[in-house]
Amino acid sequence: MRPEALALLAAACWAVSSLFSAGPAQRQGAFAFSRWRMLFASLILWALALMGGGWRSLDASAIGLLALSGVIGIFIGDTVLFACMNRLGPRRSGVLFATHALFSAVIAWFFLGEVIWGRALIGSGLLVGGVMLAIVWGRRSDEKHGWEQTRGPLLIGVGLGLAAALCQSVATLMLKPLMTTGVDAVAASAARMSVALLAHTLLLASGWQGARAKTPLTRKDAWLTFLSAAVAMALGMTLILAAMRLGQAGLVAVLSSVSPILILPLLWLVYRRRPAVGAWLGAVLAVLGTALILR
């Protein structure tokens, strides 16, 4: 499968999982929710890696790099993202996290020597612009859903979202050279997830109050967290690593940023109301940009 298609599938996974994640993340708290999600994802990924034998592709140097990537991208990045979502909701946190495409394009150019030119550059601009337009102008003026409320200072929420985007970019792009060596994507995801889970467990063991769950984990929240882990982390992150191995890192990051566009029809199902005109315009631009890149 083409790396561009893998990136789009990963974006779809993240869009779907955000609907599973919003409720449990608010009830459990960002740290507790992330910890449970990583536990479920680690179990799934290691079961797949052991069945497929992909763990044999990992050596000591690969594990060290994967560990660092896991701490930056999953332990810090994912936790900060859900802290942002708890403050701003999935729509506005989505537009902030979508900036990881811009961060990735700059980092890929500076450190990997990748440059996006021609039709791909125009398509990338349309796609990123469409994502921003769809989310910034994607709210109806009379929308009062709980996910649209701001909890706490707005500036802190914005800072958390941008920090999550930067962590995602750095943690993914640093693995580009490693993935081109033929490392198994499932085993690589399992290693990253396990290290992030270990970091979360140590944080909880330290006694810091912020790492504790706000409420006990209910059966419903456990199921939703498991679904989020399976779709976003076990499948989505593995698809991104596979795309990174086969394709240009900057373009993979740009295409994976369409998840906020893909979440619009899903939020429509939750809200039972049509997205605003700006959301439709942004979606059209994103589709045109994606078509130019894939062409």
Results as ranks from 00 to 15, higher is better:
residue 13 C to G: 04
residue 13 C to W: 10
residue 14 W to H: 09
residue 14 W to C: 08
residue 15 A to Q: 00
residue 15 A to L: 06
residue 15 A to I: 13
residue 16 V to T: 14
residue 17 S to T: 07
residue 20 F to S: 14
residue 21 S to I: 06
residue 21 S to T: 15
residue 23 G to T: 09
residue 24 P to C: 10
residue 24 P to D: 00
residue 27 R to M: 03
residue 27 R to Y: 01
residue 27 R to V: 13
residue 29 G to P: 12
residue 29 G to M: 01
residue 30 A to V: 09
residue 30 A to N: 05
residue 31 F to T: 10
residue 32 A to C: 07
residue 33 F to Q: 01
residue 33 F to N: 07
residue 33 F to Y: 10
residue 34 S to F: 01
residue 35 R to L: 13
residue 35 R to D: 04
residue 36 W to P: 09
residue 36 W to C: 11
residue 36 W to A: 01
residue 37 R to P: 11
residue 38 M to Y: 07
residue 39 L to Y: 01
residue 41 A to D: 03
residue 42 S to C: 07
residue 43 L to H: 06
residue 44 I to T: 12
residue 44 I to R: 12
residue 46 W to E: 11
residue 47 A to D: 05
residue 47 A to K: 06
residue 48 L to S: 09
residue 50 L to A: 10
residue 50 L to E: 07
residue 52 G to W: 02
residue 53 G to Y: 05
residue 54 G to F: 03
residue 57 S to H: 00
residue 58 L to H: 09
residue 58 L to G: 00
residue 59 D to K: 03
residue 59 D to R: 14
residue 62 A to P: 06
residue 62 A to H: 01
residue 64 G to L: 12
residue 64 G to S: 14
residue 64 G to Q: 09
residue 64 G to C: 03
residue 65 L to A: 08
residue 65 L to M: 10
residue 65 L to Y: 00
residue 66 L to Q: 05
residue 66 L to E: 00
residue 66 L to G: 01
residue 68 L to A: 14
residue 68 L to V: 13
residue 68 L to G: 02
residue 69 S to C: 05
residue 70 G to I: 00
residue 70 G to K: 09
residue 71 V to E: 08
residue 73 G to K: 11
residue 73 G to P: 14
residue 74 I to Y: 09
residue 74 I to T: 06
residue 74 I to S: 00
residue 75 F to C: 04
residue 75 F to M: 06
residue 75 F to I: 11
residue 76 I to N: 01
residue 76 I to A: 13
residue 77 G to Y: 10
residue 79 T to Q: 03
residue 79 T to S: 14
residue 79 T to L: 10
residue 80 V to Q: 01
residue 80 V to A: 12
residue 82 F to E: 07
residue 83 A to L: 02
residue 83 A to F: 00
residue 84 C to Y: 03
residue 85 M to I: 11
residue 85 M to W: 08
residue 87 R to N: 08
residue 88 L to G: 04
residue 88 L to Y: 03
residue 89 G to E: 06
residue 90 P to N: 07
residue 90 P to C: 09
residue 90 P to K: 03
residue 91 R to C: 01
residue 91 R to A: 13
residue 92 R to K: 15
residue 93 S to F: 11
residue 93 S to T: 14
residue 94 G to E: 09
residue 94 G to D: 05
residue 95 V to L: 13
residue 95 V to A: 02
residue 96 L to C: 04
residue 96 L to E: 02
residue 96 L to S: 06
residue 96 L to G: 05
residue 96 L to F: 03
residue 97 F to R: 10
residue 97 F to W: 02
residue 97 F to A: 13
residue 98 A to W: 11
residue 99 T to G: 10
residue 99 T to R: 08
residue 99 T to D: 00
residue 102 L to E: 12
residue 102 L to R: 05
residue 102 L to H: 02
residue 103 F to T: 04
residue 103 F to M: 00
residue 105 A to H: 04
residue 105 A to Y: 02
residue 107 I to R: 03
residue 107 I to Q: 11
residue 108 A to T: 08
residue 108 A to F: 08
residue 109 W to E: 06
residue 109 W to A: 13
residue 110 F to T: 11
residue 111 F to D: 00
residue 113 G to I: 02
residue 114 E to Q: 14
residue 114 E to S: 05
residue 114 E to V: 14
residue 117 W to I: 15
residue 117 W to N: 08
residue 117 W to L: 13
